[in-house]
């Protein structure tokens, strides 16, 4: 005999999946160009998440500085309106940790073991929380059994946790949207974590 909550839970997850999965973003068109122009006029860097063309661009003054190819993308909840938002927080299971320098122990000529925060220290699985309440789940393509395991955890979260979160957000009348972005490999994923800093503006289209 199954516990009574299991069918209810399954139904809830199924309904939420149907309602929230794979929303289609509006065609950005003119709105998108105006939004980018507003960012390009100001000094500083900004990101464009062009998810329809599967590209992430880091730009300044309209100049392309770096580009990432998106291998796969899927959406949950309300799609983002095309307007500038910003990165509020980056979170990861194993966030990078800065080394502390012990005064009097440094040796600038490099004879010591190099301690630095470098690209390889960045996480490749992480969440980017934007100021508009949008969550971007970023990960590399699964290669090998460890990354396949993490990818499976992401899939589980996508189909179980996020539907429930969507229902909970609807009850609380707080809009919720999340986007899963799969990049080519770990290096690409780490480079995005490195380059996208808190407070940096971005546009999702």
């Amino acid at each position: 005999m199954l516990p009574k909550w299991i069918p209810v839970f399954t139904l809830l997850v199924a309904v939420a999946n149907i309602l929230g999965y794979d929303s289609v973003l509006d065609d950005p068109g003119k709105l998108f160009l105006e939004a980018e122009l507003a960012l390009a006029r100001k000094p500083g860097l900004y990101f464009i998440f062009d998810l329809k063309d599967k590209r992430i661009s880091l730009k300044a003054r309209g100049i392309l500085l770096q580009e990432w190819e998106v291998k796969r993308v899927r959406y949950w909840g309300n799609p983002a309106a095309v307007k500038p938002t910003a990165l509020a927080e980056k979170t990861a299971l194993l966030p990078p940790k800065r080394e502390r320098i012990e005064p009097g122990c440094s040796d600038e000529n490099g004879a010591y073991e190099l301690k630095a925060l470098e690209l390889d220290d960045m996480p490749s699985y992480y969440t980017l929380s934007l100021t508009e309440g949008i969550l971007l789940y970023v990960r590399p393509q699964a290669r090998g059994w460890i990354s396949s395991f993490f990818a499976a955890l992401y899939t589980l979260r996508w189909h179980v946790f996020l539907p429930l979160k969507t229902v909970w957000s609807s009850i609380r009348k707080k809009p919720f949207a999340s986007i899963e972005i799969v990049l080519k490999d770990k290096r690409e994923s780490r480079a995005l974590f490195w380059a996208f800093t808190e407070g940096m503006p971005c546009i999702i289209s």
Partner: peptide, 21 residues
């Protein structure tokens, strides 16, 4: 990206290259 704290003091430095324009 390393951090240096002044012994017995309140000052702290983070050795990042600044990002931006």
């Amino acid at each position: 990206g390393n951090i240096l704290s002044e012994p017995g003091g309140e000052r702290r430095w983070i050795f990042d290259t600044p990002k931006g324009e």
